[in-house]
Design a binder for these strands. Sequence first.
RNA 1: GCCGGGGUAGCUCAGUUGGUAGAGCAGUGGACUGAAAAUCCACGUGUGGGCAGUUCAAUCCUGUCCCCCGGCA
Length: 315
Amino acid sequence: MLPDAPPPPASPMFLPCLLGPTGAGKTAAALALAESFPLSVINADSRQVYRDFPIITAQPSPREQALCPHLLYGFLPTEQKLGAGAFARAASLALRAEHEKQRLCLLVGGTGLYFKALLTGIAPIPEIPAAISSRWQERWATVGGDALHSLLREKDPAYAAKIHPRDRQRLTRALAVLEATGKPFSWWHTQMPPPPPYRPCKIGISLPLSLLEPLLQRRIDLMLEGGALEEARAALALCPDPDAPGWSGIGCAEIYQHLTDKLSLDACRALWFKNTRAYAKRQLTWFRADPDIRWFEPDQTKELLRHVRAHMAAV
RNA sequence: GCCGGGGUAGCUCAGUUGGUAGAGCAGUGGACUGAAAAUCCACGUGUGGGCAGUUCAAUCCUGUCCCCCGGCA
C-alpha cells in the first residue's frame, strides 16, 4: 500500500514552508516569494484540496495559480477525504518530481498535522477498513466513551493514558487500528520511518487575533459576494450528504445549514465567523508550540525574502 | 396611566420553600500520529437593577423608585 521511501538524496532538499492561521495572508506572501524565485507552490491545507469549494476554502484564484505552478489544490471530490498520511505521500511525490525539475518548492498551508506528517514523518499504519472504523463509531454511540476508554486501557494502556474518555475521534481511531492491525496504536508510534530528506525553513505569517478578526469577517463577506452560496449550491447538487468529508469545512457546513433552511443568512454569516475565529486560535496554539517557526507580519515581505535567501544559502 | 411578565456572568437563561449562585454559548490557556477547518481538556467573585425595611442572616419576603417586554387605556 505504502510506496517505498525514495532513496535519500545526497543533500537534504531546502524546503521553505509558509504556515500560520487562516486569513493572515499566506497566499499573498507565497506569490510575493514567487516573484523572486522560480518556485512551485505545494498546498499543505486540508481544505484547499477540495475541488468543489475553491472560494469557501480560500484557494488561490485561477489567476494567482497561473503565476507559477500550484500543486495539490482543488482536486478532491467532496465525498473523499485526504488523511495526513495520504497527504504526506502525495506531497513527497510532488516534491520529488519538482526537485528533479530543479524547481524550488514552497509548502503553503495551515494544517499543522500535514506539516508534521510530511516534515517529521508519520507511523506506517495501513489504511483502516471503513467498516471497522464505523463499527467503533457505533459502539461509541451505544456504550459510551467510558466503556471504550477502559477497553483501550486494557489493550493499550500507554495510549489510553494520553487521551480523554470523551475524545471520540482518538479513542475510536486507536481501537480501530488495534482491531485492524492487531498492534496497539502506541506501538505503531514507535515504528517511525527514517527522517524525511528535507531541510525546512518554517515561516509563520500571522497577526494578533484582535487584528486578524476584522480581516476574517471581511474575507467571509467577500466570499459571499464572490459566489460562495452558488458554489455550495453546485456542490450540494453533486454531493448532498452533509456527512461527506468535504462538507465539514468551516463555511461549507454553515452554508449547508443555510441552504437547507436551518439557518438564516445572517445567522450563517455570524456562525461562520465564530467558527473561523475559533479555528484561527487553534492554529495559533498549534504553531506557537513550534520553536522552529520564524514569525512575520503579512506586510513584511522584504524581511521575509531576506530570511529565505539567508537560509537557502546556509549549508 | 392601569394590569401582567421580567431585570442574576460578555450573551441566553436556570436556581435558591431565606444560609451570599450555575449551565450553555462567548472568552483565555492547552493538547494534538491518517476526519485535523477535525476532536478534546482546563479555567466561573457576578455591587444577583437602585434604595430602604423585616430577619441572626435577603438574590429570594415587604415597600418604594428606575428600566425592558406584552396587554389595556
